[in-house]
Design a binder for these strands. Structure first.
Length: 503
RNA sequence: GCUGCUAUAGUGUAGGGGCCAAUCAUGUCGGCCUUUCACGCCGACGACUGGGGUUCAAAUCCCCAUAGCAGCACCA
């Protein structure tokens, strides 16, 4: 008896005991409070449009979203497309779709490629303040100097000299790699990562898809600091790979005497079993290892969506993980559990017979089976399956058996002649099946079935399913005794493509 | 190598000096329910990295060690 039904029954029989029935608890856990949230927050999600969003992005996106919802305020989507080399024009649209799927409460959208002039202006101001200089040293050479805590010659240039060099950068007089604007930090800083990092660089090729003529682009630490201030960002939640960047960005805030946002850095999240690096995914798609960005072996949001994972489940899983600074491995198990909780009450039940064997049940009367679409929701009705005894069975489930019960139908006796099964009608009594501990298995009428491919991460499983499944495209169903799957499509020749989610 | 962050059950989390022989979820196992090996219900299993120190008292504070991770890009 399923939960809701049981509750209803108890209500009729013994309402006074109702309170003793354990209550479904509020699953959502509160994340720790943020500092300085008076008057709301302004937060941001800042992806790089190099590909679609994946689980790693989802963590940042949802954590920030969580706090904007909790405290109220604005949620800025900032497209960080300041590296022409890492921009995939198609990714702008993919990122938009993925954000919509996640259901983020975005209030503002800005593209950094629209803001190059803003960065140029502030760069000039930083140079004027003496906070930056134009460096024309070879990168490798500078690096070795930096590790020795030594200044390069460019560091001694006057403000006017720097301004002139900066103008020449903007005028295209330098080629890529020949000049960069560095923020003057502290060459003796114990952390080499802090020492005079780059703020602006030249990229001649490829052209930026949204800023065709630009050749001077800000580096992340510069544009991020400027934008975080200009956009009024109050809190930043991001991975600990940005800890050093936070330190670097503070120099810019200090030069301009701006109040920096409050930063939080969560730990690294490993995700087992899937490739997360955009470049490896892209390469895999190019070489045919993956069918596309939504290949079910990938950890992209569109891949898990295709398998029937609900955005709410991702949200629950991410909030449950929180923003601890510990390194963690993402648990598919936990995500699946969240997803099952959402999906189980919704998913209609159907029979899917994998690796089928067609048999005749001797002596079987014509019979009409009425199977519930959902055992916990009688109102949803039944699927009707009519058979004259010619049925499809999952071969693996009858192997070695003396009796099985076809679910919602009748019992079948099996005798084995060598490796050949002979099936005969063995009555309708459920008790008989119980007594013989016969498994109750799914089946299909041999003359009412449609081919179905269940795509799993371990390979495709061929079989047949109920014709009604063709009407579930886009929905998640439960193939009884197999697991939950999203019905992806029905091909022109009537084949069902289903993507396995989890048991 | 330099710099920094972290360390609670298989996984994810709570707990930040006594209320902790440590929370919750998930998982696994057992039972109940059930014409699905689903859902639901009951129960069990399972952890404070190690060593010092502070304290009447340490998972909690300090130190060291170990391990993991991150950064040291003219990527984000």
């Amino acid at each position: 008896m399923a939960g809701p039904e049981r509750r209803r029954l108890l209500e009729e029989l013994a309402p006074e005991l109702l309170s003793e029935l354990s209550q479904p608890r509020d699953r959502s856990r509160d994340l720790p409070a943020l500092e300085g949230v008076e008057g709301g927050v302004v937060m941001r999600f800042a992806p790089n449009p190099s590909g679609p969003l994946h689980l790693g992005h989802a963590r940042a996106a949802i954590l920030n979203d969580y706090y904007v919802r909790r405290y109220g305020g604005r949620y800025v989507l900032r497209i960080e497309d300041t590296d022409p080399r890492r921009v995939d024009p198609a990714a702008y649209e993919m990122v938009r779709e993925d954000i919509e799927w996640l259901g983020l409460g975005i209030t503002d959208v800005v593209y950094q490629s629209d803001r190059l002039e803003i960065y140029y202006d502030w760069c000039q101001k930083l140079i004027e303040l003496g906070g930056a200089y134009v460096c024309v040293c070879d990168a490798e050479w500078f690096r070795s100097l930096k590790l020795e805590k030594q200044a390069c010659p460019c560091r001694d240039q006057t403000v006017d000299e720097n301004l002139e060099l900066w103008q020449r950068m903007l005028d295209g007089e330098f080629y890529e790699g020949h000049a960069t604007v560095r923020v003057r930090t502290d060459l003796t800083h114990p952390d080499p990562a802090m020492r005079d990092y780059s703020a602006m660089r030249i990229v001649n090729t490829p052209a930026h898809p949204r800023a065709l003529d630009a050749t001077v682009f800000p580096l992340m630490n510069f544009s991020v600091a400027i934008d975080d201030h200009l956009l009024g960002i109050t809190h930043v939640i991001r991975g600990k790979d940005h800890i050093a960047n936070t330190g670097r960005q503070r120099y810019i805030f200090n030069y301009f005497r701006w109040k920096p946002p409050i930063y939080y850095h969560y730990g690294r999240m490993g995700i087992s079993g899937v490739v997360l690096s955009t470049s490896s995914m892209r390469e895999g798609i190019r070489s045919g290892v993956y069918t596309g960005w939504d290949d079910l072996h990938l950890g992209t949001l569109r891949a898990i969506a295709r398998r029937g994972i609900q955005p709410e489940a991702v949200r629950e899983a991410v909030v449950d993980i929180g923003m601890g600074e510990t390194d963690i491995t993402f648990s598919w198990e936990n995500l699946y559990a969240q997803n099952k909780e959402i999906i189980d009450p919704k998913a209609n039940r159907y029979f899917f017979v994998p690796d089928p064997i067609e048999v005749v049940v001797e002596g079987a009367p014509v019979h009409e089976a009425r199977a519930l679409l959902h055992p916990g929701d009688l109102a949803r009705g039944v699927r009707t399956l009519i058979t004259d005894g010619r049925v499809l069975l999952p071969e693996a489930d009858i192997e070695g058996r003396g009796m099985v019960r076809l679910k919602d139908l009748y019992n079948v006796r099996i005798t084995w002649d060598g490796g050949i099964p002979h099936l005969s009608y063995a009555g309708e009594a459920l008790e008989d099946a119980r007594r013989e501990r016969a498994p109750i298995i799914q089946w299909l009428p041999a003359n009412a079935k449609i081919p179905c491919t269940l795509h799993t991460q371990d390979g495709d499983v061929e079989g047949f399913c109920e014709p009604l499944v063709a009407g579930e495209v886009g929905s998640v169903v439960q193939f009884e005794r197999v697991g939950f799957a999203r019905i992806d499509a029905v091909t022109d020749d009537g084949r069902v493509d289903a993507f396995f989610a989890h048991r």
